[in-house]
Write a protein that binds this DNA or RNA. Sequence first.
DNA 1: AATTTTTTTAGTAGCAGATGATAAGAGTAA
DNA 2: TTACTCTTATCATCTGCTACTAAAAAAATT
Lengths: 185, 185
Amino acid sequence: MARQSKKLRHEQLKSCMECSPFVTDEELATQFGVSIQTIRLDRMELGIPELRERTRQVAQEAHANPKAIASQDMTGEILDLELGRTGISTLLVTSDMVFEKTHVARGHHIFAQANSLALAVMDAPAAVTGVANIKFKIPVREGERLVAKAEVVRTRANKNFIWVKTRSGAQEVFRAKFIMVSLEG
Amino acid sequence: MARQSKKLRHEQLKSCMECSPFVTDEELATQFGVSIQTIRLDRMELGIPELRERTRQVAQEAHANPKAIASQDMTGEILDLELGRTGISTLLVTSDMVFEKTHVARGHHIFAQANSLALAVMDAPAAVTGVANIKFKIPVREGERLVAKAEVVRTRANKNFIWVKTRSGAQEVFRAKFIMVSLEG
DNA sequence: AATTTTTTTAGTAGCAGATGATAAGAGTAA
DNA sequence: TTACTCTTATCATCTGCTACTAAAAAAATT
């Protein structure tokens, strides 16, 4: 009985921490009908830090990247890069990138990954996107990991023609043709 | 001397709290070259809560609306909308939308405004972007207010052909042609 | 049933980062 | 000098813990 109820309590404790991390040991104790010491032991076993530390972590994180995705210069993570030639980046589609109703990814995130990869590939200190032809082939959903491949197909004066193809698994979900213009001095 | 330096300290204290709220009274004391008690008095006078309370507030807020701006289904603010025909939205280019180095707006924000307006204009419960042809005509900078106008130019089966033109003042900075596909049932 | 093991409870000492109150110096201005 | 503001010092107290020891209670094993 105790064993089962302990496991159960641990499960509940973990999920409880995720949704409402601002609870004292005392409150948890009364909530679960056990003593404070038991809660402390549980936290030890599960590696859950104390209330103040939990709060601090949430606050720190929120403070570190106040606008989440929006404020980074790069969307996605670059895996491979050959300046002026090719590049590969990945992006995990998280819950904040999808429409609430349909759980389909908002197009601009996929665009952002491709566009920022194209920018990274360009061998120029500063650049802007001039023209893009893009095609969303298949709707992308939460949890999918997107892999974008960029390839510079032509370079002319300060213009770069770049192709980006984005896959989710084996499926091609998106492709884009960019003309990027480098800004010099 | 004391009076001036007190006012000054109060000013600095307030601005200090805004940018880095995770500082103890002790750290503040050494930083300002005064005693802890003075810092406490200052906080009292200025109505600044203690470290733990400050941290809690930041965490609470972050927890209440987890992804703020990034998770909204709409980018920009709709001023006018005629379903299935036209729509207008505005977007103020803020510091978190621009590249750190150049202060030029990242393309996907402009795209996002246009794309979400195009979605809004469509007279369909759910839709995805199929194809887009887009052109960034002039780089946009921080502080500019963008006005996007969308127009449905053709409707065929479950496809909508939508033009979006974005201006900053009198200048056209961006235009896009979208083919949106409505998802039914 | 007796024994071993696991789980839970209790209690003490101590810490960080405060509050609140009270008293005492320091600086300046009339 | 006196009056005044500003600053510092000191002490008791609080919350929500950690770290540790000890023991009671429950469950599992023999």
